[in-house]
């Protein structure tokens, strides 16, 4: 039945099937951080130009927005390339605070504490 098929496909969509495992796909928000867990020069040389630039940049932790700005790449392109690199295990997508399961009240307290440390 068409309705059931649509339901099922929408339930599966947020997951990527990689190497027999189903990995919950993190949403790529503007502030989502990504990093390279184990930088490998061989991988670097194997990648196509734009992905290679992202891979090299993310040796230090970067947000989606920072990648876009640093490489002068539209956000949409960054999102696609980052997802592909993450699917291949080249990049790690960090959860954002909302998705890391930090209770909201604790997060807000932590933000308040952090703001108080800003020197002026």
């Amino acid at each position: 039945m068409k309705g059931t098929a649509m339901l099922r496909s929408s339930r599966v969509r947020p997951y990527a099937i990689t190497g027999g495992r189903t990995i919950a796909r993190m949403p790529l928000l503007l502030e989502t951080l990504v990093s390279v867990p184990d930088y490998d020069l061989m991988v670097h040389q194997m990648l196509v130009a734009e992905s290679r630039d992202i891979y090299a940049l993310c040796r230090s932790v970067q947000s989606i927005a920072e990648i876009s700005a640093a490489l002068d790449m539209p956000l949409g392109v960054v999102r696609v390339l980052v997802s592909d690199l993450a699917d291949d295990g080249r990049l790690r997508i960090h959860p954002t605070a909302v998705h890391a399961g930090v209770p909201e009240h604790m997060l807000l307290e932590r933000v308040l504490r952090g703001l108080q440390t800003i020197k002026h």
Partner: peptide, 19 residues
Amino acid sequence: MVSRPSSTELSPTAISTKI
């Protein structure tokens, strides 16, 4: 701009939020 000594490098386990 505010300069902070430990600002440039985020930890490999860092998370983020926004306003």
